[in-house]
Design a protein around this nucleic acid. Structure first.
Lengths: 343, 343
DNA sequence: CTGTTAGCGCATTCAT
DNA sequence: ATGAATGCGCTAACAG
C-alpha cells in the first residue's frame, strides 16, 4: 500500500516532534524521555519504518561494515573464518560482507576498490599474491586509515596486524608424527608460489627431519598449486621416477587427496606402504578411506582473532598503531591414513 | 599524508569547473567533452579520489547491491550458486553481498532486515523455513517493491519468481538407475521438514518405484535433518530392524555419506549388497571409496538464472510482474557406489 | 557542453 | 528534554 518510504520525518510529523528527537529516540539516546522513546518506537512500527543505513553511514562517515576477502568461499577453512569474524562483529553490531578474490590479484584489486567505495570500516583479508607488487593496492587502504587485518596468507611487507597459526609447528608435528610411525623417506608437497605459510610448513618439515637425523632428500619435494590434480601429478612423478618413499606430508588436503587416489589406482597400501598427512582438516578428510590425518588450523578462532585485531585498530586513537600478530597453535588430527602402529 | 578524503568538489575546484561536471565526467556522461573527461580522470587519480558509493546510493535511491541469503555458505552447492549470481551481477556492474541464515528463521529475519537497511536493490534467497509463518518477513520485502527471487528451497506461498531444478525428475532418475542396476528394495532418506524440494524428491522416488512395479515399503523411508549423523542413524535403524534393503537413495549427500560409514563399519559391501545414491553432487562425493553416485543440481547455472530473474523484475515497469519460474534439468552422475553391473 | 539548485535520510552541534 | 540548522557526497532536474 504505502509504497512511499517512511523516514524519521514522517514519524516526527505524526508525533508533533522533530526529526532530531526521533533520531535520538531510535538511537536510544539517554537524553530522551522514556515516554517519547516509546511513542517513537510504536509509531515507527506502525508506519513500517525501515532505517536507512546508507544515510546514517554517509552522515557518520562509518558504515558498521567489515569487508572480508578470501581466495574462495567454498573452501571450508575460509567459510569457517568468516563465521568466526561474524560472531565477534555481530556482537558489536557490525555486519560482514564477504568477497572472493578467486585467486587472482586483479580480482583482489577490484574487490578492495569495491569495498573502499562501499566505505567499509575495515578489511580483513587472506592474500592472494605473494610478490611485493601484489600488495600495492593495500597501501591505499592503510594510507586512508582503513584498518586492515591479514590472516592465514599474510605478509610482513604490509605493515599491519595479522593472525596466523604456527604453520611451522603444524608441519613439524605432522612430520614428526610420520617419523614416529616409522617413516624415514617422507615426501613433501608444497606450493610453487612462495606464500609465507607454505615456506613455514616447508621449514617445519625440514627441521623435523633434521632433528630426527633423517637425511633431507630434495627429490622428494614436489611443488604445485596445491590442488587435487597437483597432488596426483606429484604422486605419479614420485612413483614413476622410482623414488623410494614411505610417506607424504602435503601442505594441502586437496593435494593429499590426489595422492590417495593415485596410490589406490596403483594398489599401493595406505598407510602400510605409504602414510599420508594433509593440512587444513577440510571436512572431506574424514570421509575418505582411509580417513586422512590433517592439521587443524582452528579457522573459527582465527576469524575471531582477526575481528578482535580489527576492533583494536578501530578503537585505537593513535594513527599509527604498532602492528599486532596473533599466532594460534595448530593441532594434529590423527586418522587412519598415517597410523601404521597401533597404540 | 592527505588524510582528508577528496570529493568531487575538490576535483572541481582544482579544475575550475563545477561538481556536477565532475560527476558527469566520472559517470562517462556523453554530454561531457572528451577533454574535460580526461582532465577530470587525471585529476581524480592525482588526488587519489575514491568515489563514495554510499552518497551515490543515497542520492539515487539504489545501491547496486544484491543481497543473497543462503542457509550456510560452506555448502559447496550454495557457494557455487553465489558464484553464478556474481557472474551475471558483476557483468551489469552490480555487487553481491552474501549472508547466512544458519538454518534458523530468526537469523533469516535479522539478515533480511540488515539487507533492507543496507538498501540492497534486491534479495535472492534459499529459504530456511517450511511453514507459512516462516515467510512473513518476506511480505515486508515484496511490499516495499524490493525484487525477491527464491532458489532451491522455495515456496509458492510468497508470490515471487523462483528457480529450481526438477527435483522430481532428479529423484526419479536416481531411483530408476538403482532399479536398472537390479535393486528392488530401495530405501529413501528424506528431510523431516517438508521443504518442497524434499517432497518432490520423495515423489520422484515413489513414482519410479510404481512405474517399475516395485512395491512401495513405508518402513524403508527414513526422515531426519539430512546431516551425516542422520544418515548414520537411519542406516543403523534399517540394519537393526532387519529390514531387507539393497539400495539407498538419499536426498542429501551428507546423509548418504553417513550411510556409507555405517555400512562399512558393518562390513556391508557397496554396491554389491547395498547400492548408494545421494543428491547435490557435493565435491566430496568423488573422494569417497567407492565414489558416490549423486544428482548434479547445476548450482552455477541456478545462480545465473536467479540473477536473470532478478534483473527482469528490476527492469520491469509494472509494479506487479507475474512471478516467473525457471526449472533446470538435473543430471545423474553415476559413480561406483551404485554400479552393480558393468556396462 | 556546462552551471545552478536542490535534496536523498540521517546525526549532530548549538541552542533553549 | 527537545528544536533548529547544517551538511555528509553525490546526482539530477532545469537552465542556458
Amino acid at each position: 500500500m504505502n509504497s512511499k518510504k517512511t523516514t524519521i520525518h514522517d514519524i516526527a510529523e505524526k508525533l508533533n516532534i522533530t526529526a532530531s528527537t526521533v533520531s535520538r529516540a531510535l538511537n536510544n539516546n539517554p537524553r530522551i524521555s522514556e515516554a517519547t522513546k516509546k511513542a517513537v518506537l510504536t509509531m515507527a512500527k506502525d508506519l513500517n519504518y525501515q532505517p536507512n543505513n546508507l544515510a546514517a553511514a554517509l552522515r557518520k562517515g562509518k558504515s558498521q561494515l567489515i569487508g572480508i576477502i578470501v581466495p574462495r568461499i567454498n573452501r571450508s577453512f575460509f567459510s569457517a573464518v568468516v563465521r568466526g569474524v561474524e560472531e565477534v562483529a555481530n556482537q558489536l553490531n557490525y555486519r560482514v560482507v564477504v568477497s572472493q578474490s578467486l585467486e587472482t590479484v586483479e580480482n583482489e584489486i577490484a574487490v578492495v576498490n569495491t569495498l573502499l567505495n562501499a566505505r567499509v570500516d575495515g578489511i580483513i583479508v587472506s592474500l592472494v599474491g605473494e610478490k611485493s607488487t601484489d600488495y600495492e593496492h593495500y597501501e591505499n587502504v592503510t594510507k586512508k586509515g582503513v584498518p586492515l587485518v591479514l590472516f592465514d596468507r599474510t605478509t610482513t611487507e604490509i605493515g599491519t596486524s595479522q593472525v596466523i597459526i604456527d604453520d611451522y609447528l603444524g608441519a613439524y608435528m605432522a612430520t614428526e608424527h610420520l617419523i614416529k610411525q616409522g617413516c624415514t623417506k617422507i615426501a613433501h608437497f608444497t606450493h610453487k608460489k612462495r606464500f609465507n605459510i607454505y615456506n613455514e610448513r616447508y621449514r617445519g618439515y625440514v627441521e623435523a627431519l633434521k632433528n630426527h637425523n633423517i637425511p633431507f632428500n630434495e627429490s622428494l619435494v614436489c611443488e604445485g598449486n596445491m590442488q587435487l590434480e597437483d597432488g596426483r601429478n606429484c604422486t605419479k612423478r614420485l612413483l614413476d621416477t622410482d623414488n623410494d618413499f614411505d610417506a607424504i606430508f602435503s601442505s594441502s588436503d586437496y593435494a593429499i587427496m590426489g595422492a590417495m587416489q593415485v596410490l589406490k589406482e596403483r594398489n599401493v597400501k595406505i598407510p602400510e606402504e605409504v602414510a599420508l598427512v594433509g593440512f587444513s582438516n577440510e571436512p572431506f578428510t574424514s570421509f575418505t578411506d582411509p580417513p586422512l590425518t590433517s592439521v587443524n588450523q582452528f579457522p573459527i578462532e582465527m576469524g575471531q582473532a582477526a575481528a578482535e585485531l580489527f576492533f583494536e585498530m578501530l578503537n585505537s586513537t593513535k594513527k599509527k598503531l604498532i602492528p599486532q600478530k596473533t599466532v594460534l597453535q595448530p593441532e594434529l588430527i590423527v586418522r587412519a591414513s598415517s597410523l601404521k602402529l597401533e597404540h
